[in-house]
């Protein structure tokens, strides 16, 4: 059985994926509670690629209806940890 994800795992993965999607972004100054869309120049195609990359990296299913729950870095960590834990219990 795989090791449960930690908040730091998710945070690091999220930032890595963001860096691939928006390579020009200064992720060091990213405010964790503020929406990505308010801080980065990303569109719906970028966001879809972001979700696909998170899904592939973390093996977490992300329904489209849950996209608003991935709005910021902190929101991503909270949501993805919960989804990962839920899928491990299932």
């Amino acid at each position: 059985m795989s090791v449960p994800l930690t908040a730091e795992d998710v945070r690091r993965t999220t930032l890595r994926v963001l860096g691939e999607i928006a390579p020009e972004a200064d992720l060091a100054s990213l405010k964790p509670d503020v929406s990505f869309r308010d801080q980065l120049d990303i569109d719906s195609m970028d966001f879809l690629n972001f979700v696909i990359a998170l899904h592939e990296a973390l093996q977490v299913e992300i329904p489209e209806a849950d996209y608003p729950k991935l709005a910021s870095l902190n929101a991503c960590v909270e949501y993805l940890l919960a989804r990962s834990a839920a899928s491990r219990r299932a």
Partner: peptide, 12 residues
């Protein structure tokens, strides 16, 4: 909702 994340469509 029926599709895997890699197969979803964008509105555009």
């Amino acid at each position: 909702q029926k599709r895997a994340v890699t197969d979803r469509l964008l509105y555009g």
